[in-house]
Simulated scan of single mutants.
Amino acid sequence: MEKSKVYFTDFHVTAKENLQQKLSRLIRTAGISQIDFEKKYAAIKIHFGEPGNLAYLRPNFAKTVVDIVTELGGKPFLTDCNTLYVGGRKNALDHLGSAYVNGFSPFSTGCHVLIGDGLKGTDEVLVPVECGEYVKEAKIGHAIMDADILVSLTHFKGHELTGFGGALKNIGMGCGSRAGKMEMHSSGKPHVSQKRCVGCGMCTKICAHSAITVTEKKASIDHGKCVGCGRCIGICPMDAILPASDESNEILNKKVAEYTWAVLHERPHFHISMVIDVSPFCDCHSENDVPIVPNVGMFASFDPVALDAACADAVNRQPVMMGSLLEKSVHEHHDHFTDVSPNTDWKVAIDHAVKLGLGSKEYELITI
């Protein structure tokens, strides 16, 4: 397979060009204008950051991307889907509030924010994955599948389950509805926390398979009838219904790649990764630790697989940041991500994505 082009620039600036202008030049040089945006809806997939975490991308970077898409005639919107875990982004109202608190508003970014899977994380489209080894129908946020074009703007950082969080993780996991996220994280079905459950019966009303019953003001799920759709998780007002979270990291990585395929298949897409504030864990944490390496730069490509490979290689070439978790780790893997999270293997997702035809891990790095 021919090497994919990945464009790169560092964070050094001059009096004539600030970081936003440099990002704009990178994106244009990488060829975003090759996409026909005219009067088309463009979903810009981003992570708004869990409240309390300060490592997420600044909204200024999002505005740069929005301005280019708008200039090219597109109708951009910033988007993400609700989280599976309980936190500041588990439903659309909380999610929007968290986005606004972290600076992502129409006034700061130049476009609206839409939560891809709706109010309770149940607004989804079932997308067939013909080439899927583990996923046969991906559950993707409805608003994201309604878009004509997908642009990913990724904060590249470490991750405790996938090794790192790059473009594949941002798209695959991030565009999954709550049920989709459960499918990626779990090989089983949800269960009820009896301590939290108040027996309100909301879950019984939304279950299409009569798998949930309430006895003595406590719900229980019959796993023989449950199909694992996850809608009960979204509807529960007490956060009493929980996923199993028992999938192996290897299979989780492969499912993320298959969900990415579902999102990108048969529509134009473009990808940007910012290797800055490379925290050891996901921006879903309500805190962030010292970056594990110095800031590297900005990358852009039409190929999300090559982009992730280039970013990973660039991080692994960096010196260890003093005082970080990486410095305190046992350095026996010769890989920064695996040294921080030894039970992960980030290469699994990339190799599986190549197998699915999502892109190439062989790339030509073009520095501007």
Rank of each mutant, 00 (worst) to 15 (best):
K120A: 10
L19K: 14
D339G: 06
D10N: 15
H334E: 10
K205A: 13
L153S: 00
K328H: 11
A262C: 01
R317W: 12
P319W: 11
I27W: 01
T338D: 04
Y134N: 13
I149M: 07
C175N: 09
D10I: 01
V227K: 15
M1Q: 04
P128L: 11
V198H: 13
C131H: 14
K255V: 04
S210T: 13
V192P: 01
E250P: 03
G116P: 09
V305W: 01
V151E: 07
A262Y: 02
A353P: 00
I149F: 09
G165Q: 04
N288Q: 08
G73R: 05
T338A: 12
D335G: 06
V290Q: 00
N82W: 01
E130A: 15
G188D: 04
C111S: 12
E247I: 03
I46V: 15
L161W: 09
G180Q: 09
T79D: 04
P304V: 10
A240C: 05
V13L: 13
H331N: 04
P128V: 11
V348Y: 06
T204M: 10
R25S: 15
D123G: 00
Y134S: 10
H95Q: 04
L126Y: 12
S105Y: 05
D148T: 06
H223C: 06
N288T: 10
M184T: 12
H271T: 04
G103E: 06
V227H: 14
V101M: 15
I276F: 14
Q194V: 08
E332Y: 13
I221H: 11
I140R: 07
N316C: 10
C131Y: 14
P76R: 08
T79S: 12
H12T: 13
P291G: 09
Q194A: 10
V315T: 07
C200V: 06
Y56L: 06
L252T: 14
G323D: 12
E130L: 14
N18Q: 06
C111E: 08
D222H: 13
G174N: 03
S210F: 15
D222Q: 11
A167V: 12
V135K: 07
N170F: 04
S248H: 02
T29K: 13
V354D: 01
A257F: 07
K22P: 13
L84T: 01
A262L: 02
N91V: 02
I276R: 15
D222L: 10
V348W: 05
D117G: 04
V315D: 01
K75T: 04
V263S: 04
M322L: 12
P106K: 11
E266W: 08
S341V: 00
E38C: 11
E250N: 08
V340I: 14
K75H: 07
D313R: 12
F164P: 02
L78M: 09
W346V: 00
S108K: 00
H223P: 00
D148F: 06
L84Q: 03
G110V: 13
V13D: 15
F61S: 09
F281C: 13
A312C: 12
A314H: 02
G165C: 08
S98W: 01
L78I: 02
S24Q: 15
S329Q: 03
P190L: 05
L168P: 03
H336R: 12
M202W: 13
L54D: 15
V65K: 03
I27F: 00
A179D: 06
